[in-house]
Nucleic acid binder design. Structure first.
Lengths: 110, 110
DNA sequence: AAAGTTGCTACGAAATTAGTAGCAATCATA
DNA sequence: TATGATTGCTACTAATTTCGTAGCAACTTT
């Protein structure tokens, strides 16, 4: 399971373009959620697991490894937390919240 | 495989919050990529498949169904294309390109 | 009318994800 | 300082997802 990193991509993408690596990384189950849950507070393994609906520890473990390798999170004395780049990713993904709301609206109008 | 929709989520998320449905939907392999490839040009099934590195037609087919159900794409005489909401999603995701570039930078500096 | 193209389904194999159990290390409490 | 709880994580199996190939019916093109 080659982890997606820029420059040396990844799962079914032969292009080598960074955005494809992003799609690959974020397209794996739980990755966005994990980063999202870490956006405000550093958390321990088990805290994180709990916040992610009790996701299985084996998967969480591999996700953590990949996200660390991708330099999006790091382990500190406070637990796992976003790196600067990781945080900036969450910042650029933040408008998703608003979009999600309008998406939801669209469904109510049916 | 319950498809993720707002209000009635989804795979391992019990919250019911729209953003979680987004994470679920976009967290499935190929979904972001498919939307991304459609952002400028409507495309036929086989075109789309080709652009997505020849992804397997069975998966593409189920993805198309889900994305249609989520009202992000629609089938027209020109092929599959983004709906308005789908397009707005791509707009809010657009800054990812720039982020990906800086992410890549961070790796070069190692 | 023959040959190609397109959209899609079937189906078995491979890979990913889930779930449960458990264990060594640290921490807290008594 | 013994005891019990908590934490971080690994092992292992089962379930689900994804892949890959083959193929077919409905068009289109020649």
């Amino acid at each position: 399971m080659t982890p997606p990193l820029p420059k040396k991509p990844v799962r079914g993408s032969s292009t080598g373009i960074a955005i494809m690596a992003v799609f690959d990384l974020l397209g794996r189950k739980w990755n966005m959620r994990i980063l999202w849950e870490l956006r405000n507070v550093p958390q321990s393994f088990r805290e994180l697991q709990a916040r992610c609906d009790g996701m299985s520890p084996s998967v969480l473990n591999t996700r953590i490894k990949q996200l660390k390798e991708a330099q999006l999170i790091a382990k500190t004395t406070d637990g796992y937390q976003l790196t600067d780049i990781g945080l900036s990713l969450m910042d650029t993904l933040d408008p998703l919240r608003e979009w999600a709301a309008s998406w939801e609206e669209a469904f109510k109008l049916e």
